[in-house]
Design a protein around this nucleic acid. Structure first.
Lengths: 116, 116
DNA sequence: CCGTATCCGTTCAGATACTG
DNA sequence: CAGTATCTGAACGGATACGG
């Protein structure tokens, strides 16, 4: 954990409004990583924890609840023993992937340019 | 100001690393809006303030310094009277625009889906 | 006009411990 | 395995006042 982020409250302009609309879903330390991990298909709670090593159970739980509430992912609980839960992107959630891809592309550029 | 964002510290996975690399630049309440406002060309401090109404001078100043330090934009000071300062995206900063465009696209989808 | 300095509230994230 | 509870610290953002 080295890079910094910031809080957010929505501004109001016409286009920037749409910017903020999506940023609110994407933003934060872990939300984008969670969505990224679910890109290839459903994942369980503990799988997400190993996918995104330094995330704490509390924060992962909070992020998952938030993303579920926003309609980005759904929770499937299997009442087995031991219990198991799967998280999966909704069609709406999958629409975020192109944006994340674009962000990853720029991430590569930022890295290479900085080391140049 | 209604939508929420979160803090950030970088994780470590291979791809998600690139995700976070760019998110650190893009994240926060105002950074994306500042970049968006500079998309069409150089802007002065007060112009940015009116472009992004509810931003305070302190925060705008902080964001501009940060983005300058990251090599996303440059400051041109004109020692006139009254003084004037222009901010302009660097080539590196302009590389962020496709990502912001993608984010705006999803923003539209999020809005329409939610009202459906 | 272009900022900086200060104070202060809110929110998020980390660590630890504990439950079904 | 899948979480929740609590406490703590840090970072961001808002408002106001002031300086070059």
């Amino acid at each position: 954990m080295t890079l910094k982020m910031r809080h957010n409250r929505s501004p109001k302009p016409p286009e920037p409004c749409m910017l903020t609309e999506c940023m609110a879903v994407i933003a934060g330390a872990w939300a984008p990583n969670v969505i990224w991990s679910l890109r290839a298909g459903p994942r369980r709670f503990s799988e997400l924890r190993t996918d995104i090593p330094p995330i704490s159970a509390k924060v992962l739980s909070a992020r998952l609840s938030e993303l579920e509430e926003r309609g980005v992912l759904v929770r499937h609980v299997r009442r087995t023993s031991p219990p198991s839960t799967e998280y999966e992107l909704t069609p709406l959630g999958r629409e975020l992937i192109p944006a994340l891809d674009a962000i990853v592309q720029v991430g590569h550029r930022l890295k290479t340019v900085r080391s140049a």
